[in-house]
């Protein structure tokens, strides 16, 4: 990890809208956040607070419209980049609901992605070895490599597959969108260990989006941001997560309701 240069993802006053049947709705209302290599930031918040919107907006999902603000990675304008350019620049989004791509095998998909990210095909022998090792670390059956991408995967398999990609694609900044949702304790531990391993080996910065504090027992955050109504309501260190665990989000939601 000594070879990894330091990276910074900077989000400045980000405003994002989405089209709904009721018209245009503003979801993000001025988000400012800086993530550096090696740091783990937890974004916590109630449902509907805009956590996932933040993740998808950074990744470039066409459903979301950026109305103002900036996102830069090492000074480069991320918002000017296409979805695949963002990934090649070093951003990674582990999705809450990974998409099935029938008929495209996991091994073909991973090799194609790795080739795209690195700009050259991986050396076959080390690639096969790395893939096997990472799958085995994540307690994934080797046969999964020959199945279609997420095709018929269980919820746990899908999440492991997301983290497998993080390990192999070695992003500079990884955004994990509710990677803990729908996982039992064993799967949560395996997935969390995978995240920690990937972070350890690449020095990536991690933006961990979660509703629950449970995953924070396995992945230790350096910073905790509480997300309410499309912006950060409170920030602090790991102790803030403990407080949320004890008190829940009520404090923020009632404050919001009276404002």
């Amino acid at each position: 990890m000594s070879t990894v240069e330091s990276s910074t993802l900077e989000i400045r006053d980000l405003h994002v809208t989405v089209e709904t049947e009721q018209g245009t709705k503003e979801i993000l209302r001025g988000v400012t956040l800086t993530i550096n290599s090696g740091e783990t930031h937890a974004i916590m918040g109630p449902n509907g607070s805009g956590k996932s919107t933040l993740a998808y907006s950074i990744a470039g999902h066409p459903k979301y419209t950026i109305t103002s603000g900036t996102v830069t990675l090492n000074g480069e304008d991320v918002l000017e980049m296409s979805v695949d350019e963002r990934a090649r620049a070093g951003l990674f989004l582990a999705m809450q609901y990974p998409v099935e791509v029938p008929g495209v095998t996991v091994s073909n998909f991973l090799r194609t992605a790795k080739t795209a990210i690195d700009g050259e095909a991986p050396k076959l022998r080390t690639w096969v070895k790395d893939l096997k090792q990472s799958m085995s670390d994540l307690k994934m059956d080797a046969a999964v490599a020959e199945r279609g991408v997420n095709e018929g995967f269980s919820g746990g398999e899908k999440k492991r597959h997301e983290i497998l990609q993080m390990e192999l694609l070695k992003p500079k900044i990884a955004i994990l969108d509710e990677t803990d949702s729908g996982l039992d304790v064993d799967a949560l531990r395996i997935v969390s260990e995978g995240v920690n391993r990937a972070k350890e080996s690449t020095g990536a910065g991690v933006l961990l989006i979660t509703h629950y504090t449970r995953i924070l027992r396995y992945i230790k955050p350096d910073f905790v941001h509480v997300f309410v109504d499309g912006k950060i309501a409170e920030e602090g260190g790991p102790e803030l997560a403990d407080r949320l665990e004890a008190e829940g989000y009520d404090r923020f939601q009632s404050a919001n309701a009276t404002s």
Binding site: S82, D84, F92, V99, V101, T112, A116
Partner: peptide, 25 residues
């Protein structure tokens, strides 16, 4: 599907080709 593949660095044309090939595979 296109978004998922592109979010892994795969350019749009290649992603389309993968999806269609997968469909017929």
């Amino acid at each position: 599907q296109l978004f998922y593949l592109q979010a892994r660095g795969i350019d749009e044309d290649t992603a389309r080709r993968l999806v269609v090939r997968g469909f017929f595979a």
